[in-house]
Design a protein around this nucleic acid. Structure first.
Lengths: 203, 203
DNA sequence: GCTAAGGTTTCGGTATGCCGAAATCGCCGT
DNA sequence: ACGGCGATTTCGGCATACCGAAACCTTAGC
């Protein structure tokens, strides 16, 4: 029973999402940290991505996705976010509990099942954290947004990183969810980690 | 990202289901055929099952599950059948389309998600093919049944093997589904493969 | 301009799980 | 009782994907 190449899918997904909201390039070291792997493992795997035409990488340089790599990444991002949305809306999960489950299921569900869930959900355009869900053809709409760190006077919450469940529970208890409005006082009260996780609409 | 030991799970599941409706012991060769693997691969893997205390196997002899092996098998069978039931009842799959999808998802869903789907379905006791769904504690009720091959006068259909989608579509078109009643004439009209796939209530 | 620190790559090694070919076993038929 | 045949196991090999240690680059600081 051949195991699907879930590793490649995870790599391109992380490379893609790293530059989704902030235009920074990613290195093998950063990728390793995000994936929880040793740097040497990542260097090796990135070579395979390059060999497959999914990524571009000069030794000691930044990693970028090719059009093929971006397409695969968008496919995985779509899967991940559709599954998160389904878990929250149809299964009763809290938005802080969906990440790990989606991380596994995104590699396991068939396109057919994904499409069925997408239809049941009414083809949502964003997930519970405010991240845009790419359409099946790879197109997506991402609102202009800036980190609260860079917008201390607040605004409409557009997106909250799903990386830290504890933070998510805390923010929800404070009423800080997608589409909520936060003012300057609210911003000032936020911890540093929180500020680095919340995006508000760009003015 | 370490891959879960899905191979072990598949092996014990197949060993278990092989003796579920007919009390025949299974050999490495049969197991290999069911899993679509080379015989040598299966011999090796069975050694690992024995080393892990999941199976009993004397070289050149039959394979049996230990209590631990049976428990793991029941867990996987429960997962497989709950997922099949969910796909049919909540996602709109046909009963002939669920097998492959469940085969993958049974290794990917968390216990938490499984329990949530189980609750949504009202804790079903059998899947769309009539196979009993083990409870979370491993208990299950299996009706007394015999192959149509051995009951030419017919009876109430209790179970239909899910192994051949084409056959399933054909049978459904004929009105042969779980709980249907088939008489002697109906039985006589069945092809040999069909007879080997349909169980009726034992008299 | 050079060096040292820190990030990156190379290298040898591990674990899993699969395969084909060759060796081996068990048992049936005579 | 034994020869053979089919089933089973052993053996060497392969692919994936991971790791730690050592070698290697790059660049920031002086």
């Amino acid at each position: 029973m051949a195991v699907a190449p879930t590793a490649v899918e995870d790599y391109v997904k992380v490379i893609y999402t790293h530059t989704e909201w902030q235009p920074e390039h990613i290195t093998t070291g950063l990728l390793a940290a995000r994936l929880g792997l040793a740097a040497s493992s990542v260097t090796e795997m990135v070579k395979k991505l390059v060999a497959q035409g999914l990524a571009i990488h000069e030794p000691y340089g930044a990693i970028e996705l090719t059009p093929d790599g971006t397409a695969l990444a968008l496919r995985m991002v779509r899967r991940h976010r559709l599954i998160e949305t389904w878990l929250v809306q149809h299964v009763g999960y809290g938005w802080d509990e969906v990440h790990d489950e989606a991380e596994v299921l995104e590699h396991a569900m068939s396109d057919k099942l994904l499409d069925a869930l997408d239809a049941q959900l009414g083809h949502p355009s964003r997930d519970p954290h405010g991240d845009p869900i790419p359409a099946a053809d790879g197109s997506l709409h991402r609102p202009q947004a800036v980190l609260v760190t860079d917008a201390p006077s607040g605004g409409v919450v557009v997106r909250i990183s799903d990386r830290d469940p504890v933070l998510l529970r805390h923010l929800e208890a404070e009423g800080i969810v997608v589409d909520a409005v936060i003012d300057r006082a609210r911003c000032d009260a936020l911890a540093v980690e929180a500020r680095a996780s919340i995006w508000v609409a760009a003015t």
